[in-house]
Structures are given as structure tokens and as C-alpha cells.
Nucleic acid binder design. Structure first.
Lengths: 141, 141
DNA sequence: GAGGGTGGTTACGTCCAGGTAACCAAAGGC
DNA sequence: GCCTTTGGTTACCTGGACGTAACCACCCTC
């Protein structure tokens, strides 16, 4: 009943070289603060630097530049400079970037479906922890 | 041709409260150093603390405890204490934890498929950057 | 009574992701 | 001459993730 319905995932890297594990490098990008949000912002077409900045009011200019550079370096995002004045720059997903949308969608969907359960679990865990902590206070006092 | 084949992913959170965005909380867990590896270690059955530690030689005891606690708090992992002596503790995936294997598998698979392209892209990006940097050195010198 | 094997916790130090703010060039408006 | 807008870069600082090492209780064996 609680048997895994998923085919076994091979452990993606040897542990003696987890520093250059390919899966880790992807997870690191997915896991950083802004990459995923930027990829989602670009999913329906190219956007200019300023538009992205205004779409994500909390991102600093520095992090926007840096995150876009990393995505470009990984080949997930294209950067096009238009020779206007002042110069305008457009960012868009590459084909590989587009293809990353599928697994991201799986994750986003899972997160949205399970978010209530996770929240419940956290609440009851914290509640139980507080109980135990209270008991310890009593014993110590 | 380069049109997105994926149905549009709704932006998963409002940006005025990205601190308690459900998707972010999942990505933070996925993105941390050990959670994913532990989930993969547990995919084919319960394992004891010591077994997990020996499976991941690079993890410190502190991080193993901490990561397992977080996974337990989120309801992804069950912790069972056996009243033997010395006490032994077994960790296993909950049903929700099992269900997370599917999106993780998507990501792992994507990473493995695209890893060569990413590496190529990084190499040529870094090569180009070195070129530009070299040119700047010449101008400055 | 010293040492080993359970599964932890705690104090402490380090390192880096990320935020803040100042600065840049070029051209246009006034 | 000064301010604005474009898309950056740079120096500096902080918070938190993570690692290291010591310590704990428990009971066993030797």
C-alpha cells in the first residue's frame, strides 16, 4: 500500500566527487533565490531587463544581473543587446531553458498540491516540540 | 519552432509575500545541500541513522540530524525509535515523501540529459569571457 | 573502570549568497 | 548645465548555512 509507485531513481552521483555532480549543479541553480522565478517570468516570451526588474520588485539590480548571467552561462537564457540609445537588452529562454519548464512545472504542481499537508505537519511538529520544551522547563525549574 | 511546448505555469506566488510562498519553501528544501540526497537514499526502504551516515560519507553528524529533522517536520520522513539498547532509530519516507520522488525524478532526469549541453555552454561562456578579459588587459596595459 | 557502539546536542568558527548603495557611460529633454 | 533612463559594475556588510569538535546518556564487553 505504501510501496513506492515510482521506478527507482539511480543515485545521481558518486559521493567521492559530489562537488562536480551534474545533478547538484542543477539543484543549486533551481534552489537559489531568483533563478526559478526568472525562468517562470520568461516562459511566455522575451522580456527586457527593466521589465524583469519591475516584475520582481524585491530583487536587487545586482542579483538580477548576476542571476541572469548564470542562466546565460548555463545556456538556459539568451541575452540580446539592441543597439539603441540608451541600449536595451532583451532576455529569453533558450530551447534548453524551455525544456526545463517541464520538470519545474512538476515541482511547482507538487508544491501547490502538498502545501496544506506540509503546513499542517509543520504546525503539529512545532506544537509537539513546544510541549516537550515546556516539560523540560518544568523539570529544570 | 521555439514556441513553448509546455502549458503555462502560473507564477506560484504573489511577490508581496514571497517569504511564505509555498513553492519557495519546497525549493528551499530541495535546494539545500543534503535533503534530496537523503530522500533518494530512503527511496527503497527505511534506513537507520548510522546506515545513512555511512552511505553519505561527507555529511556531518550535525547536518544529518538537522536535515532529517527538517524533513520530518515537513512530513516527508517518519522517525521511529526502537526501544532497544542502545536505542536504534529508523527513518523512512512518508507517503507524501514518496510522492515527491516523482517530480525529483523529473529534475534528476532533466539534469542528466542536459548536463553535457550545460557543460559546453559554460565552457564557451567562460572562454568568451576570458577573451574579453584578455582584450581589456591589452587596452589597459 | 576503560573503551565501544547507539543517536544525538551544543559551542564555535568560517564562508558565501545576497542586500545596499554608490558609481559608470551615453544621449535626450528642458 | 542638470536631470532622466537605459543596463549595468563595484565595494562593503550581514545573516545564515554548513563544518568541526567536544560532550552527553545508556549499556555492553573486556
Amino acid at each position: 500500500m505504501t510501496q513506492t509507485p515510482t521506478p527507482k531513481i539511480p543515485i545521481p552521483c558518486e559521493f567521492d566527487d559530489l562537488s562536480n555532480c551534474p545533478v547538484r549543479s542543477v539543484l543549486d541553480r533551481i534552489g537559489d533565490k531568483w533563478s526559478t522565478l526568472l525562468i517562470l517570468q520568461l516562459q511566455d516570451g522575451p522580456k527586457r531587463f527593466g521589465v524583469l526588474r519591475r516584475s520582481l520588485p524585491d530583487i536587487s539590480q545586482r542579483m538580477l544581473t548576476q542571476t541572469l548571467r548564470n542562466l546565460q552561462r548555463d545556456g538556459l537564457v539568451d541575452r540580446t543587446v539592441f543597439d539603441t540609445v540608451p541600449p536595451s537588452v532583451e532576455y529569453s529562454l533558450t530551447d534548453m531553458g524551455q525544456s526545463l519548464l517541464t520538470p519545474i512545472a512538476g515541482l511547482v504542481n507538487w508544491a501547490q498540491v502538498n502545501q496544506p499537508s506540509i503546513q499542517d505537519s509543520r504546525d503539529s511538529f512545532d506544537h509537539a516540540a513546544a510541549q516537550i520544551d515546556g516539560a523540560r522547563q518544568v523539570r529544570a525549574g
